[in-house]
Design a binder for these strands. Structure first.
Lengths: 138, 138
DNA sequence: GTAGCTGCAAACTCTTTGCAACTCT
DNA sequence: AGAGTTGCAAAGAGTTTGCAGCTAC
């Protein structure tokens, strides 16, 4: 049984067919799929699945903190299954989302918040960039 | 004439009544209003204004880089008139948005992007926190 | 058996758009 | 005069929800 399934059961959710399918899709997603993308992938495994169920399931998982909803300045949401803390670099040419971590950044953010009299609860950093192409850079 | 108005005229926009009203609202906004909020404030000055015009105007201003659209993990957009570059600290208890700048952060972000082979085009950092209350901290 | 889950379709929210009338320049 | 702008209402995109039937427990 997958880790996601395990955690859902612990949370008292029934492990139904559609749910299993969606969890499988999420568990295997290496990217940050939109609801539509999750729906398409789930439908490939079980064509009877409804997009309403995908929405409902993602909302539940978000509330249980098993996935994270992102709004990357698009008109829709994307989701990712929760892993260790990281940030996102979005390639403006391809839309690809690349994850990264940076220790210095973590420390700096804590420091900034504290200096402003705040306890940091959450934060997000997104970089939007273009791949540097010149192979013969000086 | 306000700075925003000046820049709109330079961009070749006609300075109509509704436009003036919206620009006045934006120029006087010290916060990060939603479209709805801009609309309400504009209506108080000119009740005949339509929300379609508010949307159209904000989209134009965003394209001209005179305002910036934000998606603070809400289901709608907020706008702010462009000022020098800064980031946001969102008070989770009040929803208040506090701006800040940090030189170290700017340098660090450039460095991270470059190390990953990217030219940084844009970025956003948001901190979500809770005000530290204890006046007698150790 | 029953609480919870599902698909469907309708409803809802936020945003955009076609159009005829109007208004800056 | 004419291009650009407006309000209105309708349409669009993304998301949520009421409901009757179904399913895991």
């Amino acid at each position: 049984m997958s880790d996601l399934e395990q955690r859902c059961i612990e949370a008292g959710l029934k492990m139904t067919g559609p749910r299993k399918t969606i969890l499988k899709v999420l568990g295997e997603a290496g990217d940050h799929p939109s609801v539509e993308a999750v729906y398409e992938r789930a439908k490939a495994l079980d064509s009877s699945i409804s997009i309403a169920t995908v929405y409902r399931t993602l909302n539940m998982l978000d509330e249980l903190d098993l996935v994270t909803r992102h709004e990357f300045n698009e008109s829709f949401s994307r989701y990712e299954t929760n892993m260790e803390h990281h940030h996102h670099l979005i390639d403006l040419e391809t839309g690809q989302v690349i994850e990264f971590q940076n220790k210095e950044l973590e420390l700096l953010k804590e420091k900034i918040a504290r200096e402003m009299g705040f306890e940091l609860v959450d934060h997000r950093l997104e970089l939007y960039g273009r791949k540097i192409k010149n192979k013969a850079s000086k």
